[in-house]
């Protein structure tokens, strides 16, 4: 093979590598910046609800998540609860106008789950609140988040690390507490 021919084939290989690298970069850009799934559920929220703004105005978690101390699920407030304030508060804000739109169309807001447990594990909020576990232990510093984001990876190890430190450790280690 002549020198010229070998140079040409090397150039072809280089060009191939460059195209491959470009494709990989494009895929990475798509995954990281365009496809919302990789970023977590928070980006999918129909309204960019700002937790920080509400918490800094002194609104307690339980004002909206009313079920947290008496039922398995903390609950997402109804549009009615939102409108209780936002009929008068910050009505010019574009997100609030979107909220008002749902209210006027009498539609529920299709909020997206931030935390999802596997179907074979059952969590109950109420006993945790009763035992004095703060919301932040599992949900992170939501008061300083804008849109809520997952703060911890909710694995069995995460649950048991805390259960192991409790007084009634034996009872809290029973599989049947969470698995049925």
């Amino acid at each position: 093979m002549s020198l010229l021919a070998s140079l040409a084939s090397r150039r072809r290989i280089l060009a191939g590598v460059a195209v491959l690298a470009l494709v990989l970069v494009l895929i990475a850009v798509y995954l990281l910046f365009i496809n919302p799934d990789v970023l977590g559920a928070s980006d999918d929220q129909p309204i960019a609800f700002n937790h920080q703004a509400h918490a800094q105005n002194g609104i307690q978690c339980q004002y909206c998540h009313t079920g947290v101390d008496n039922s398995p699920v903390a609950g997402i407030p109804s549009v009615y609860l939102c409108m209780g304030c936002h009929e008068y508060v910050a009505t010019e804000h574009p997100e609030i106008q979107e909220l008002t739109g749902y209210w006027e169309r009498q539609e529920p807001i299709p909020w997206q789950r931030v935390y999802d447990l596997p179907s074979f594990a059952f969590f109950n909020h109420a006993p945790h609140i009763s035992a004095g576990v703060s919301c932040g232990s599992c949900h992170g510093d939501v008061a300083n988040m804008t849109v809520a984001e997952p703060a911890v990876e909710m694995t069995m190890g995460f649950c048991l690390d805390c259960h192991a430190e409790q007084e009634n450790k034996d009872a809290l280690y029973d599989c049947l507490i969470c698995h049925r």
Partner: peptide, 20 residues
């Protein structure tokens, strides 16, 4: 399961007092 979900549901309420 002897309806373990019902047992846990009753116990894990304020009325059930979260006791055993």
């Amino acid at each position: 399961t002897f309806c373990i979900q019902r047992i846990q549901r009753v116990r894990q309420t304020p009325e059930g007092d979260y006791g055993p």
